[in-house]
Design a protein around this nucleic acid. Structure first.
Length: 203
DNA sequence: ATCAAGATTACCT
DNA sequence: GGTAATCTTGATA
């Protein structure tokens, strides 16, 4: 298996408004190339984070040491550490100077499931219930895909971690809701997820 | 220097 | 459905 068989998303895909990109990420494949094999998950839930108008965003108050990548040009991976335990990964959007990114909240595991299971549950077989629980949350995705501080800033147009064309999603299957786990800017409906997909983190 | 909050998760009742 | 765990970051002094 090599990367040629994937239709990798081009740089131009990412250099647009975050609010346009977020729903388009649904159905795309999130791919990580590892020594042993590829890990692949279909994106089923995301959240958009913007600057200036978005009080919940890390970028709301301008550039800091942590959020610098959000202001970089689109097509990078922004990884941050939260609650003393978890990493979350985001797709940086728009042109340089705009502080926006899309949080990847849930994946449907497609390939490399044994590796994900080992990292999440310390065993390579999973029950049906555990399968649904593998990557249905931002911290769980990073654990299963072994993504941490070291992956912060990775170029999504490179060979290591990238997004690829996946399933075609019809508009009527895209649900919209308030974002999860935030206190400010709750009124913005910037969470997008696939209707009836069992790997979505919450209703 | 100090401190409170946080884009979560797992485990409990 | 509620909450403890856990520690980095950014704001304030």
């Amino acid at each position: 298996m090599n990367t040629k068989q994937f239709h990798k998303l081009p740089e131009t895909f990412y250099q647009k408004d975050v609010f346009k990109i977020a729903p388009k990420l649904l159905g795309k494949y999130f791919v990580k190339k590892e020594k042993q094999q590829f890990l692949i998950g279909k994106i089923v839930e995301v959240e958009a984070y913007a600057d200036k108008i978005d009080e919940a965003s890390h970028s709301f108050n301008g550039v800091t040491k942590r959020n610098t990548l959000m202001f970089d040009s689109g097509g990078k991976l922004y990884v941050y550490f939260i609650y003393g335990n978890h990493f979350c990964c985001n797709v940086v959007c728009d042109k340089e100077g705009v502080g926006s990114a899309v949080l990847i909240r849930a994946l449907e595991p497609l390939k490399g499931i044994e590796i994900m299971a080992e990292r999440r549950f310390q065993k390579n077989e999973v029950t049906a219930k555990e399968f649904l629980n593998l990557t249905n949350g931002p911290g769980k995705i990073c654990k299963a895909f072994n993504i941490s501080k070291d992956e912060n800033g990775i170029d999504l147009c490179g060979e290591n971690i990238f997004l690829a064309e996946g399933e075609k999603i019809s508009k009527k299957n895209i649900m919209q809701s308030p974002r999860i786990g935030i206190k400010k800017s709750k009124e913005l409906l910037w969470r997008f997820y696939l209707k009836d997909n069992p790997f979505v983190s919450a209703k």
